[in-house]
Design a protein around this nucleic acid. Structure first.
Lengths: 353, 353
DNA sequence: CTGAAAGCGCTTACAG
DNA sequence: CTGAAAGCGCTTACAG
């Protein structure tokens, strides 16, 4: 019973409906004027033969794939446990779907390869445009990517020389600065910054924001308070030890560039018998699903990745459909979700320097 | 300086290298015999003109896209916070990349649409094959999908009538049964099952496993112990209330079909002043990144979704490249990760019925 | 409104 | 080893 379909083409349908193939094409491509009777005849023949236009042939003909490219560094395990990736996909998918596009996602085996793969998609015209998420873009790669003159939008800031590409990003620097300000406002004076990968631009931007916030409060920064946990739980855990060699001068508050490292901090602090938030405060980043359910519930800087991705997809598709280069740059504000991992530093003990 | 490339075709290169277009094609498609000198000439011309073969044209010609389809229900927020999705992508990407494929991922606005979209990808031949993840497959849709005779592999069990499709799944039923057995072995007699969406087949399979485990231990099941939290944290939270109306007969252990619901259980139990694992034990499912970092660290049934996805991709690509229908069915064993949310039920209090 | 033709940019038997 | 031709399955000016 479940007989399988043989693939039929526009010519088969044309023969069966006794019209020219171009007529069949017209009823399926939708835009042309077709008399109702022949449309019905064609549709019926198509139904009989289970015809569906071949998307690839159509793409070749109209020079449009209805597809947007993304490259995912699938070799980094952490990439799939972090909430960035799912949110990115959610945002991209949401607007792609609404606009009739699909995502062409390719793997890559490292940051170098990310550009190779992106370039390949563009150069072979496998997609109508691409969104590039690497946080380690140098001038040359952006230049190379742009030269393909296929629409491109960046998630993250571009190098200064390419200030005119379309990009969308979070307010990494200023949001971090605000977190520091918030902590200072609660009486903290010795505040630590735990970044991810020091080479990534997000992490650099956050560090700037940290220094700016400390400076604005007139606070000196000890280099011992700056540490990198490479976005891993264990990195956060180890940061506790590295930042507290001199307990007398140890931080009373930590800002971590993702929640996983904040969880590591929580664990390291607990092991040392340091109470959070009683003695030390912690704020994470990304507001991952677990944040609300930790003990103590973790205050976290929520970064609107989904909205960022959705905006990127919108800019990209707008450009594809208008035939112009993608334009515009948009920064989305992060938002500190206050929970219970931060407490005002007890006045009596507040080390006002 | 950053002049953009005009797109060049095989004919431009042929003209410049003074050879026939078919020769250019041959040097790029790799398989044909070409003299070293003309190969160099062609390569140089190609470099000059920045030529890269158009992937779509090639696809149309060879009738192969080097692409495998996946449909993602992007309208369900929970889908992107659960660890299933990232792991699925990781596994798919890992083998696709290794085999030179990319993923064509499309959104869908609900379970109905999932089949519509999958069918569309198949019927329009936009991908060489597809992996279908829906857990609500009925006989008709599987039949319809198969009739397109484009390779198809299922993640999850197929309806009985389609036992011969290729599929790969976790050992949902038996693993759940083993968890019950494990709990029974620790002295628990009143054990609750908190499922996700009762209509999904995974949840049904787990319920069977639960009943089987209870039966094997000679334990009667109270229907009050069976509840559904729809995979949400709040669902787990509410399940506490619903399962403990009669505290004298309340469960001493809970099995939840995902970690998010287990987290909700933890919260609900804590609010009632019930100590975990002192008074009640909890085991979750999926071993999400947060599980290890909860208080208490959550014991969880780790389901190897990444491996499942990788296997599915392998079966699919094997089929695509051999030209035969995908074959084989594979079930991957889950593994209980023991942490601290389970404790033997104190002998003195053990309600041996 | 419909047909006939040329074209999208490749590939691949078929000759030689 | 290389050329010339036909074809992959659509679309879309151009006529009428």
């Amino acid at each position: 019973m479940s007989s399988s379909f043989s693939v039929s083409t526009i010519r088969d349908v044309a023969a069966q409906a006794e019209v020219h193939p171009s007529t069949v094409s017209r009823v399926f491509s939708g835009n042309a004027q077709i008399s109702e009777t022949t449309r019905q005849r064609v549709l019926e023949a198509a139904r009989d033969l289970n015809f569906q236009p071949n998307a690839i042939a159509r793409s070749l003909s109209v020079r449009r794939t209805k597809t947007i490219g993304v490259i995912v560094p699938h070799v980094y395990d952490g990439y799939f446990t972090d909430s960035f990736f799912p949110q990115l996909m959610a945002g991209l998918l949401e607007v792609s779907y609404a606009r009739g596009y699909r995502l062409l996602v390719g793997g890559c085996n490292g940051y170098q390869d990310e550009h190779v793969q992106a370039l390949d998609i563009l150069a072979t015209r496998q997609a109508d445009g691409i969104v590039v998420t690497s946080s380690r873009l140098d001038v040359d790669t952006v230049g190379e990517l742009r030269r393909q003159n296929t629409p491109l939008v960046l998630i993250g800031h571009p190098p200064a020389q390419h200030a005119d590409v379309a990009w969308v990003d979070a307010d990494n620097r200023s949001a971090t600065c605000q977190v520091i300000d918030y902590l200072v406002g609660r009486g903290h004076r010795r505040i630590a910054y735990v970044g991810g990968d020091p080479d990534s631009s997000v992490v650099k931007e956050r560090l700037e924001g940290y220094r700016e916030g400390m400076a604005a409060a007139g606070l000196a920064v000890s280099e011992a308070w700056i540490d990198y946990g490479y976005f891993a739980e264990d990195g956060g855990y180890q940061a506790v030890e590295r930042t507290r060699r001199d307990e007398a001068n140890a931080p009373t508050a930590y800002y971590a560039a993702n929640d996983l490292m904040a969880i590591g901090l929580l664990r390291g602090l607990r092991e040392r018998g340091i109470d959070v938030p009683g003695q030390v405060s912690v704020v994470g980043t990304n507001d991952s699903p677990e944040a609300a359910h930790l003990l103590p519930p973790l205050s976290s800087l929520r970064v609107p990745y989904r909205a960022i991705a959705a905006t990127a997809a919108t800019l990209l598709i707008d450009a594809i459909e208008s035939g112009e280069q993608p334009q515009g740059q948009r920064v989305w504000a992060s938002c500190l979700i206050e929970r219970e991992s931060v407490q005002s530093f007890p006045d009596g003990f507040s080390p006002k320097n």
